[in-house]
Design a protein around this nucleic acid. Structure first.
Lengths: 158, 158
DNA sequence: TTGATCTCCTTATTATTTTAGCTTATTTTT
DNA sequence: AAAAATAAGCTAAAATAATAAGGAGATCAA
């Protein structure tokens, strides 16, 4: 069994994926174990970092973050990669940054307030070392998405 | 103030984004309110669906889901969109599905076990009504990502 | 002003989680 | 093969957390 997990662990993980605040007695009922046994299993799953963290998922649409986009960036020279990645890390509106195969070297997932903040972000990215091209696809509507907000970014009162 | 939220609500939301299982007494300390007051605020935030749900985030890399990719799909004829979306919903390996501007009509984020399951998924997608073209970018490495697993998909014993 | 509403508090009650101690099964060591 | 160690489960008790109930003070509308 992979990673020393059994069916019971899998059941617990799957349930916590959907119900991140599920109580131990509820899980215990599902897997037919006592509450302390479930606690112990959860502790181990967290200790082994199979569960990396727990998050509340917020509805970004309700917070005046209207624009979601995927931005393909061509970063020339892999010397420039570490610095580029560090910069994306410091941009809270960049939700994800992936190094990819094919056209472009990186894809960014972005969530920002409006066209103005989006444009500013894009021109900021363009100015970074090694960035030669970028292409954006703005999201019109989403299905199956996580609707996350940039957690560092202040959610401004309006 | 947007959506009737004040600074205290924002603090609670931000903390729950990072600590999805945070306890009410911990939150109470952060915002300098009593535990029942925090409870009441959480209840309202959930009721208003500002918090859509809570999730445990699992480390996909530890579960033999090696391949993450972004797939651009061109679906011809918007009549075909609803059916297309329904089909992506039934594919647990499709984590996200977005309708987009620019080249292609939809972008999918995919997480799958290996090249074999990836290829099968791609050819399945190609066979759907209206799908004329697709282009994939496989993720080599990721930064700032949520590393989610397809929650419906069985995590197979190995 | 008066009543209604809202948000907070404290205290008491109920529920959940953790700890402790014990049992059994399995694996490792001698 | 027997003994020891380890792992994982259980129950019962203790500790901690969450909820419910009741009341105070502020704000707003009639």
């Amino acid at each position: 069994m992979a990673k020393g997990l059994d069916e019971i662990d899998i059941k617990i993980l799957k349930h916590l994926q959907k119900e991140g605040r599920a109580q131990r007695n509820q899980l215990a009922e599902i897997v037919h174990l006592s509450v302390p046994s479930v606690s112990e299993r959860m502790r181990k799953l967290e200790e082994k970092k199979l569960i990396t963290d727990y998050r509340a998922i917020l509805d970004g649409k309700l917070f005046n973050f209207d624009i979601t986009a995927f931005v393909f960036v061509e970063v020339d020279g892999s010397d420039n990669y570490p610095k580029f990645i560090e910069r994306t890390t410091n941009e809270p509106e960049v939700l994800e940054c992936h190094s990819i195969t094919g056209d472009g070297s990186h894809i960014l997932k972005i969530r920002t307030e409006n066209t103005d903040s989006f444009e500013k972000l894009l021109s900021r990215i363009q100015s970074w070392d090694g960035v030669s091209k970028s292409r954006s696809n703005v999201v019109l509507s989403s299905f199956k998405e996580t609707t996350e907000l940039p957690i560092e970014k202040t959610i401004d009162p309006k």
